[in-house]
Structure formats: structure tokens, C-alpha cells
């Protein structure tokens, strides 16, 4: 079945965190590498602080733009616990790259629900292959908190069979010229974090 021959990547987070840019970079890198590519993203109501999901699939021939459950090569979460909502997307040997950033939903701040107490070891029980990244802290050190998404992307890239050249080209294509250097740094920082994890 073609799901097996397809690389599937899932990005999750909260509206406004930049998951669309991260998924667009993967899609562009895959396209530049000669693959068939399909992506899907959530629009509309979900953007108002809701949970968001972007999916990228690439391979020789891709049919469905939606990632089937249990097949994601990697999942990147820009929020500490959002990945759990989508855990059934991940393949058994899939990689999870998770930012330690907590975004408290209104249901929690209003007292209607509780935010789960979960640290790195708790996440590791759910995601055996985990790269846990202090992405906001690292991005702030780089000079722009908005680069957190590309740090995670760099970590995730260690699991994908795309060349350095393809990644660099894709970042240059998808990011405004003034931010290319910052994002390249963020990408390689994330990559180092994953390789040393």
C-alpha cells in the first residue's frame, strides 16, 4: 500500500504558532527533491486559539493529502501536550519532537479543566522516540522567539531523507530574505539538538 512508501509528517500546535511555515518548508524541500507532495492544513474557526494540525506527505506518488493514523514518520508539536491529542497519527517507530512551551487554554485558565502535569519523562513514556526542545528559550537566544518553529523543524529533519541542500533551498524560498540567516541558524540548532539527544 502506498502509505508504506510515503513519508508522512504532522505538525501540531495552537493557532498562530507558525506550524504552516514549518510544514511549507518540508513540502518545498520534498518538491525540490523531485517527490510528489501533498499537504493539508486547518483553516477557519480553528485559528482562533484552537488546536491546529498541518500534514505533509511525500513520495513517488501520493494520493491522500491526509496522513492515515499510525503512519506518521515524525510529529512535531509546538506546544508541550498538543502532540498527545494526535498521538495515534504516529507510526510505531515514529519520532516526536516536542517544544516545552505551555499554552494554557481558556478552559484551564477559567478553571473548567486542568492542564496535565507532564514533564519530559512523562512525555517519553508516551513518545519513546522523543526530542524535547526548549524551543522558545533557544529561539529567544537566537534573537527571535518566532524561530521556535524552525528549531523544531531542524530536529524533525533528522528523521527525513532530504538533503541539506534541499532544506536550505526550501528555507530560502519560504522565508523573507531578512530572516533567512536566522532561520538557517534555528534549523541547524534544532538538528544538533536532535543528533545529540
Amino acid at each position: 500500500m502506498s502509505a508504506k512508501e510515503t513519508t508522512n509528517v504532522v505538525f501540531v500546535g495552537v493557532g498562530g504558532q507558525g506550524i504552516l511555515l514549518a510544514s511549507a518548508i518540508v513540502a518545498t524541500a520534498a518538491l525540490e527533491s523531485g517527490y510528489d507532495v501533498k499537504t493539508n492544513e486547518i483553516h477557519g474557526m480553528a485559528q482562533r486559539g484552537g488546536s491546529v494540525l498541518a500534514q505533509v506527505r511525500y513520495g513517488k506518488k501520493v494520493y491522500s493529502p491526509l496522513v492515515p493514523k499510525g503512519t506518521a514518520t515524525a510529529i512535531a508539536s509546538l506546544e508541550r501536550t498538543e502532540a498527545i491529542r494526535y498521538v495515534d497519527y504516529l507510526a510505531p517507530d515514529g519520532l516526536a519532537v516536542i517544544s516545552d512551551q505551555v499554552i494554557v487554554p481558556v478552559t484551564v485558565s477559567s478553571g473548567a479543566a486542568k492542564y496535565p502535569e507532564l514533564d519530559e519523562s512523562g512525555l517519553r513514556e508516551i513518545f519513546p522516540k522523543l526530542v524535547y526542545v526548549p524551543a522558545v528559550e533557544r529561539a529567544t537566544e537566537l534573537g527571535n522567539v518566532r524561530a521556535a518553529n524552525v528549531i523544531l523543524l531542524g530536529a524533525l529533519s533528522t528523521k527525513l531523507d532530504l538533503t541539506d541542500e534541499a532544506w536550505q533551498d526550501a528555507i530560502k524560498k519560504r522565508v523573507k530574505p531578512a530572516f533567512v540567516d536566522l532561520n538557517l541558524k534555528a534549523f541547524y540548532l534544532g538538528r544538533d539538538l536532535a543528533q545529540n539527544a
Binding site: 502509505a3 495552537v14 493557532g15 474557526m45 480553528a46 485559528q47 482562533r48 486559539g49 484552537g50 488546536s51 492515515p68 493514523k69 499510525g70 503512519t71 501536550t81 498538543e82 498527545i84 491529542r85 498521538v87 495515534d88 504516529l90 507510526a91 510505531p92 487554554p105 481558556v106 478552559t107 484551564v108 473548567a112 479543566a113 486542568k114 492542564y115 496535565p116 507532564l118 512523562g122 513514556e125 508516551i126
Partner: peptide, 20 residues
Amino acid sequence: ETKRELPALPTLPNRPPVLC
């Protein structure tokens, strides 16, 4: 699909869209 045994998952708070 080969499914992975998952540990008990924590209950996640809903994250409904809200007024900004």
C-alpha cells in the same frame, strides 16, 4: 497497520476556538 501499545494518556483540556 502495526499498532503500538500506548500507555494511559492524560486527559487533555479542550482547546476550543475562542474570541481573541
